[in-house]
Simulated scan of single mutants.
Amino acid sequence: MALFETKAYLKDKIGKLAAANETLLNYLKRTNELLPDQYQSVNFYIKETAALESDVMEYTHKSRKSIKILIQ
């Protein structure tokens, strides 16, 4: 059950991060000016993406482990 909850959490987080990145990307397409707020957003999204990647890798590891247990 925990893997399903984790999957839902990761899926939601991916969607929110993708939407935020899309908003920032649209702003950057309209202007070449990167304001301090947008600069902070870029740094935040980079950190969030790295954390999300780590969470996805952990989820993948746990799900593979669970599958191996079920197969045995």
Rank of each mutant, 00 (worst) to 15 (best):
A2S: 09
T49P: 00
R30F: 09
D37W: 01
I14K: 11
K68L: 15
S41D: 08
Q72F: 10
K11V: 03
E33F: 15
K7N: 08
D12P: 00
E58S: 10
F44D: 09
S41H: 05
N32F: 10
S63M: 15
L10M: 05
S54V: 12
T60G: 09
R64V: 15
T49S: 14
S63H: 08
K7T: 08
A2E: 06
A8F: 05
T31A: 10
G15D: 10
I46S: 11
L70A: 15
A51F: 02
T6D: 06
L28W: 07
A19M: 14
T31M: 06
N26Q: 11
L34C: 06
A8Y: 05
A20V: 02
L17W: 03
D37Y: 02
K47P: 00
A19V: 10
N32A: 04
E58A: 15
Q38D: 09
R64I: 11
Y39H: 13
K62E: 07
Y27R: 14
K47T: 04
G15C: 03
D55L: 09
N32K: 13
Y27F: 12
K16Y: 01
V56R: 01
K68S: 07
F4V: 08
P36T: 01
A8W: 03
K65V: 12
L52P: 00
N32Y: 07
T60A: 14
R64F: 14
E58L: 13
D55I: 03
Y59T: 05
I71R: 08
V56A: 10
M57F: 01
E58Q: 10
Y39D: 01
Y27M: 08
K7R: 13
F4Y: 11
F4C: 05
I46K: 15
Y27E: 08
A51G: 07
K29R: 03
L24E: 04
Y27L: 07
L25S: 15
